[in-house]
């Protein structure tokens, strides 16, 4: 008997007591199909403006920096200014995301853009989030042809663009959108929920930023468009 059969058989025998296998199978399939919502905190259920404000406050609370721009046309300028203010070279790593691609990067002629997956030596990376979550100040990103996951983790500075209209109240709303985009039961290879910059408290429980992932997380919220 294979390990699979042995484990499943043991479980089956132990669980059969109450209901028969077929009834349980049906109930399980129905529960997965219905995916009932549990307790959703009221915290994120706010009018649009307040929700964006809460998102920004929660992100700052976990040591992200946040800036709001009026339109996606302002993003290249905001990225260049971020690098200048921190004395970083005018160079970013970026995937081939269509939303980022449509922005007027030529307004920043001195800014060099490296495309493709991130490299070890990259200092700054720019990504576009599919959503922000107000209840925790989290940005949500997924992998795909245009979105290398390495950009989220290798550079020292991670700049994430999120549209204000994509900022939702809670986790459940993001999962509903993912189900809609990819089809129920299907997922992108990687779905990243990122809440602040990388950190560790493993040495004497002292909290330090910049463990293995980015030392800084900068969120650019695009209000217009």
């Amino acid at each position: 008997m294979s390990g699979r059969e042995a484990i499943l058989n043991r479980l089956r025998v132990a669980l059969r007591e109450g209901k028969d296998d077929a009834t349980r199978e049906q109930a399980v399939q129905a529960r997965i199909a219905a995916a009932p919502r549990g307790v959703v905190p009221m915290r994120g259920r706010l009018p649009d403006d307040d929700r964006v404000t809460l998102f920004c406050a929660m992100a700052q609370k976990v040591s992200a920096t946040v800036e709001r721009v009026g339109s996606s046309a302002n993003v290249p300028g905001a990225v260049a200014a971020y690098l200048r203010q921190r004395n970083l070279p005018a160079r970013v790593r970026m995937g081939a995301d269509a939303r980022l691609g449509a922005m007027p990067w030529n307004t920043e002629p001195s800014l060099e853009i490296d495309s493709g997956r991130a490299q070890d030596e990259d200092l700054a990376g720019v990504s576009h989030a599919i959503a922000g979550i107000a209840e925790t100040g989290t940005v949500v990103l997924h992998s795909g042809q245009d979105n290398p996951t390495t950009v989220n983790f290798l550079p020292e500075h991670h700049l994430v663009v999120v549209r204000a209209k994509d900022i939702v109240g809670d986790l459940e709303t993001v999962f509903d959108q993912v189900r809609q985009t990819f089809g129920k039961g299907h997922m992108p290879r990687t779905l990243n929920f990122i809440t602040g910059p990388s950190r560790s408290a493993d040495i004497e429980q002292t909290l330090l930023l910049g463990a293995h992932g980015p030392r800084a997380l900068h969120v650019i919220v695009v209000d217009g468009d």
């Binding site: 991130a118 992998s143 042809q145 992108p188 290879r189 779905l191 408290a201």
Partner: peptide
């Protein structure tokens, strides 16, 4: 929602990552 709060008192840990299968056709990494 209960995991991070009970563990470290964070509302959410920094990285919550959902992985499904290997890299897809055309993915630049993974």
């Amino acid at each position: 929602r209960v995991l991070a709060r009970s563990a470290t008192g964070q509302d959410m840990s920094v990285y919550t990552t959902l992985s499904t299968g290997p890299r897809r056709a055309g993915d630049p990494d993974g």
